[in-house]
Design a protein around this nucleic acid. Sequence first.
DNA 1: CCTGCTACCTGATGGC
DNA 2: TGCCATCAGGTAGCAG
Length: 279
Amino acid sequence: MPELPEVEAVAQTLRPLVLGKKIRCVHVFHPIGVKPQKSAFLAQNAEGQTIRRVTRHGKYLLLELDRGLLSLHFRLDGQLLWFSNARELEVNANRPPHNVHVDVAFEFNRGVLGFADRRHLGRVHVFESRNVGSGLRSLGIDALSKEFSAKQFAQLLSQSRRPLKEFLLDQTRVAGIGNIYSCESMWHAKIDPRRHADSLTKKEAARLHKAIVSVLRRALECCLRPAPDFRDPSWWFQGLEKILRAYGLEDQPCRRCEKPIRRIEQGGRSTYFCATCQK
DNA sequence: CCTGCTACCTGATGGC
DNA sequence: TGCCATCAGGTAGCAG
């Protein structure tokens, strides 16, 4: 559930399910999912606590407890699953013929929340506060927060000479933008991903800021309709393809100028863009 | 501090 | 059909 809109949709959908519920028991089926923390540490710090708020910062989903918080990061493939009870989870997960890998589960009085990830790259951690944990602590401004203004964005851009694409993926500057929506935002703003961040004019920075916010809002609407279905392990966000204009469209004609979309590599990741209308 | 590289994992896909 | 290479919406950790 990779980028900000997907995580926000999950947060909104999850909120009514877990708010005010007490974590009766934590199950760690695959310890890699809590690494580098220990299973016992997670259990000790989460069991018996009630979920007071469900929030999000960048791509991190945060379950705030009476004391401390749970930090869930889905990386590339992580997802949440909901089971009626521990028995249902036991029957349906982590055993053939089902292909459902629940690494960590939180059991409530009614219902169980599972964190599943077949690649085991996603992580569940427990922290005293948001200021602990390297990834979470160093996150920049959330791209859908009030603090993310055009002025603030221009300021951040001016402080970096990295290629724009790499700058947008840097979660310590602006949090929440990933590979898809960085490409989409730059396409909408008509700016070349290879430009250095500090080379953007104020006007271009403002255009890109606007593009980022509208791309993320649009994607969030898509992610909420239909809303995530935690009861279906095969569920995934649908319909996002129809809003994409660059990502994954190598060799297909640009929707503005008809020239083929190009794919290049930046920082070890694919960038899709139109070399003709993105300057 | 910054930047760039690799590791971490599994599964889907396409070429031969 | 099988085998191999490549790709995937991400980040942590490390060296320089």
